[in-house]
Computed example of a mutant assay.
Amino acid sequence: MNVTEATDFPPSLLEIVLFYAEAGVDEAIGEQPVDRTQAPPPREAVRQPANPAPAAAPATAGQSAQRQAMPPRQAASVTPALLSASEVEGAARRAAKACQTIPELEAAIRAFEGCGLKATATNTVIARGNPQAPLMIIGEAPGRDEDAQGLPFVGESGQLLDRMLKAIGRDEQNTYISNILFWRPPGNRDPSTEEILACKPFIERLIELAQPKVIACAGKHAAATLLGTTQGITRTRGRWHEYQREGINIPAMPLLHPAYLLRQPGVKREAWHDMLELAAKLEQLGL
C-alpha cells in the first residue's frame, strides 16, 4: 500500500454512500442496521425434555376424512431458494393455467412466492389500462415509481409512453399495459434468467386471457422472452414478428423502451416510425 492509499483509508461516509449509489443500491431493507462483521452468537443446544410427550394417537376415521377434505396448498408455498428454476417455472405454469379470468390470475400472481424479487419489492405490479383493448404493450419490469404505486409505466418513462400512445390516438381506454416481471429488481438492474422463468407463465396466461390483436414488446428482455429474438433491440425494433403459443398467433413488434429514449433522445425518430407502424397495423385490422 502506498502513502496515498494509506491516507485515503478509511473512506469517508460520503465516499461510502457514492459507492453504494453507483452499485445500484437505492433503498435499505430493515429498520435497524446490522453489523455483518460481527460473528453471530452461538446457538444454544436444544434440550430434550426428561419425559418426552407420548406419541400421538392414531387418527380416527372422522379425522382422516377431514384431512383428506382439506384443499391442497397453493403455489404461494413455493420457496425459490429450495427449488430449481425449472421447478419454479412449473409451479408458476400450473398456477397460471388454473386461472380462468384476469382477476383470478392477478390473485395468483400476488400469492405466488416463487420469484425472489417479491421479497424486496413494495408492491406487486401487474397491469393498467383496458384488458379488452386490441393493443397490448408489454415492458420489462417495474421501476421505483411503479413499485411505489403498484402500476406499470407510471414513472418518467411511463409518462413518455403515454405521450407516444396519445400521438397515435391511443390511451388507457384502448390499450392494455403490463411487464414480463411483476416485481422490481433492486436498483433497476436487468432481470435474471431465473426471475424471467418464474414470471413468464403468468404473462403468457395474461396474453391468453386478454386476447389482444396486436402486441408491442418494449425493450430487449420483453422481445427476447415473448418473441424469442436473439439480436439486440436496435436490430429487431420496427419489424413485425409473430407471438406464437398453443394456437395463438398475434402480430407483435419490438419497440425501443421509453427509458432508453430518455437516455438516447437521438433515436426518437426511429421510435416515432415504429409507433406509426403500430397505428397502421391497427387501422389495417379495423381496430
Rank of each mutant, 00 (worst) to 15 (best):
W183N: 01
W183M: 01
P186S: 04
R189L: 11
P191N: 02
E194R: 13
E194H: 08
E195Q: 15
E195M: 13
C199Y: 03
K200M: 10
P201I: 00
F202I: 03
F202L: 06
I203Y: 06
E204P: 01
E204T: 03
L206D: 01
E208S: 14
E208T: 14
A210N: 08
A210R: 02
P212V: 01
V214D: 03
A216I: 02
C217Y: 01
A218K: 08
G219N: 05
K220I: 11
K220S: 09
A222V: 07
A222Q: 07
A223I: 04
L226S: 04
T229W: 10
T230G: 15
G232C: 02
G232R: 06
I233F: 10
T234K: 13
T234R: 14
R237N: 12
G238L: 09
G238W: 04
R239E: 12
W240N: 05
W240I: 09
H241I: 03
H241E: 09
Q244L: 09
E246G: 11
G247F: 09
G247W: 05
I248F: 09
I250E: 03
I250Q: 00
I250V: 06
P251W: 02
A252I: 01
P254D: 06
P254A: 07
L255Y: 02
L255T: 06
L256P: 00
H257C: 07
H257M: 01
A259C: 05
A259G: 08
Y260K: 14
L261H: 06
R263D: 13
R263W: 08
Q264E: 14
V267T: 11
V267P: 05
K268P: 00
R269Y: 11
M275S: 11
M275A: 10
L276P: 07
A279R: 15
A280G: 10
